[in-house]
Write a protein that binds this DNA or RNA. Structure first.
Length: 154
DNA sequence: GCCAACGTTGGC
DNA sequence: GCCAACGTTGGC
């Protein structure tokens, strides 16, 4: 079992939005990066846990925990011309883009801000803190996972 | 296969 | 709105 960090812009879809969904579950659609797609396909599995990270917003940081509840499967938005995620180069018989389903698992007692992540020496190696990192999903080590859960009050 | 141009991400 | 970083595109 692995640990992940998933970025989302809270204006578009927030951790609170996820909690309000039926079964607190939502397909993680819109991934259009090959590295991230491959990671979902090859390394993510139901049961894995992830941090829900708010990006591109006044207060970037981690709001809580989600669980991966469905393995990678074709993202239907790639075939929908009305969708902003439409990809005319993708074929139904060989879908280019995949998604997983995630479920709201637990909210942090304390929001773990980007500042808190940066200022903790135990987290200095995190991919999310690297300059220029643009992957919307990154893997988190078990040590990092436990430390961040402490910071979040869990 | 190279690489310049362009687009996107995301913190500030 | 700025800008650094990096992925993608497309001409050659």
């Amino acid at each position: 079992m692995r640990y992940w960090l998933l970025k989302s812009e809270p204006d578009v879809f927030s951790f609170a939005d996820l909690k309000k969904r039926p079964h607190k579950t939502e397909p993680w659609n819109g991934v259009r990066n090959y590295q991230v797609r491959n990671m979902m396909r090859d390394h993510m599995a139901p049961g894995d846990l992830g941090f829900f990270y708010h990006s591109s917003c006044p207060q970037p940081g981690i709001a809580g925990i989600v669980r991966i509840v469905k393995e990678a499967y074709p993202d239907p938005t790639q075939f929908d011309p009305a969708s902003e995620y439409f990809d005319s180069g993708s074929r139904t018989e060989n879908p280019r883009w995949l998604m997983v389903d995630v479920k709201w698992e637990a909210g942090f007692k304390t929001f773990v801000s980007l500042d808190m992540l940066r200022s903790d020496p135990a987290l200095a190696g995190m991919l999310i803190l690297r300059r220029g990192n643009r992957l919307s999903i990154t893997e988190v080590t078990e040590k990092e996972w436990k430390r961040i859960c402490e910071l979040g009050g869990l």
